[in-house]
Design a protein around this nucleic acid. Structure first.
Lengths: 208, 208
DNA sequence: GTCTATACATCGATAGAC
DNA sequence: GTCTATCGATGTATAGAC
């Protein structure tokens, strides 16, 4: 507003940069160790600030965890599931998008271990931070289920229920194979799962 | 072997009973707070023993956690999914068992909050205790996927892949609605999901 | 706003008596 | 085997100088 632009770096800018550095350090620490085992000392050291600076910005450990997680919920879900789809779809395009979406979800989760640790953290702390878990669920419902339902509506009936089957099967596979180190399935076995899903769910309506 | 049966309670029996009490206290503490936030002091107090007794029986905190979790993996999975099914099945029986199994899995998980906390714990600690997570996955694969595959083989093709879709959809629903407090679906919305699953997956083979 | 230094509690694990 | 008492380390959070 009325700040003088003479100084190359204002106090506000310094403070904002430190707040970002703190969030970055907190992300690393919380994702690696979980909420309880995370240490405010290590976060301060990683961020290159002192402990009181963290407390002056975020209040306490739980508030810092909330600030970090609620931000990650939006970003990570958007990264994995991409932007919203266009309004109307031809059946062929819908089938294609469905297959692409399946592969994108599986591949992105495999390649980014940060996403796996994020899932571990949100689920593991869902008993003590139910509001954060609810925020994650709401974001996935909005971004993913809505889009899947829209795509499926172009080719079959009961698109909502079938969207749940689609995303449920993919998430379960990621959870068991990647998060829980199942290791029973290779990429050669995950791909036909997506293909079979598209085939099964795009079947013609039973009551036309 | 050569113990005298005159004494009503031998030292061995006392020790075994304490080991059980410790496991019971550890279960309560670990399930409620997670591994890192769990306190050996509180476990000792809940179990009615002193801390050195715990350490003489289980070595350290991680070993106690392993002993508890590996035992719970077997028991909880067996409780929810029941005994193995008979060898051969008629298609009608198979469809019936499939529907019963779906309802059993959903209802048991809803009614026993201990199972929900167990899922939170195993997933949340799967980064730091990968072997325990693998044990859980292996138990589910053996007990559930094998049985589902057997049932589905009586009525359709690709029973293995379809078994993954079946269990994946159910587990994902439990995860989002119950573990993560989604709350978007009532029982009236979970039941048709199971019915739709049976209908979709029991479709006739495409390549007979 | 940001630092150094510290208060105060609790942690996991153990020594030594019995 | 089991106890009481305690060790050293680490935890969150804060007081006071600048």
């Amino acid at each position: 507003m009325n700040d003088a632009p003479a100084e190359p770096v204002t106090g506000r800018q310094r403070s904002a940069r430190k707040a970002e550095a703190i969030l970055k350090g907190a992300r690393q620490e919380f994702l690696q160790r979980g909420y309880a085992a995370a240490s405010m000392d290590r976060i301060a050291a990683t961020a290159g600030v002192s402990k009181p600076t963290i407390y002056s910005h975020y209040g306490d450990k739980a508030s810092l965890f909330r600030a970090l997680t609620s931000r990650m919920v939006e970003r990570r879900v958007a990264d994995v599931f991409g932007p919203a789809s266009p309004a109307a779809l031809e059946p062929d395009q819908a089938r294609k998008q469905l297959a692409q979406l399946a592969e994108r979800i599986v591949v992105l989760n495999e390649r980014h271990p940060e996403m796996l640790n994020f899932l571990r953290m949100v689920i593991g702390e869902s008993g003590r931070f139910p509001d954060l878990a609810q925020g994650f669920v709401a974001e996935v419902q909005e971004r993913v289920l809505a889009r899947l339902t829209q795509i499926l509506a172009a080719i079959t009936d009961q698109p909502e229920l079938k969207a749940r089957i689609f995303i449920g099967t993919l998430m379960h596979t990621i959870l068991f194979e990647d998060v829980l180190h199942g290791g029973g399935l290779g990429p050669s076995c995950k791909q036909p799962l997506g293909a079979l899903l598209v085939e099964l769910l795009s079947a013609a309506p039973k009551h036309p």
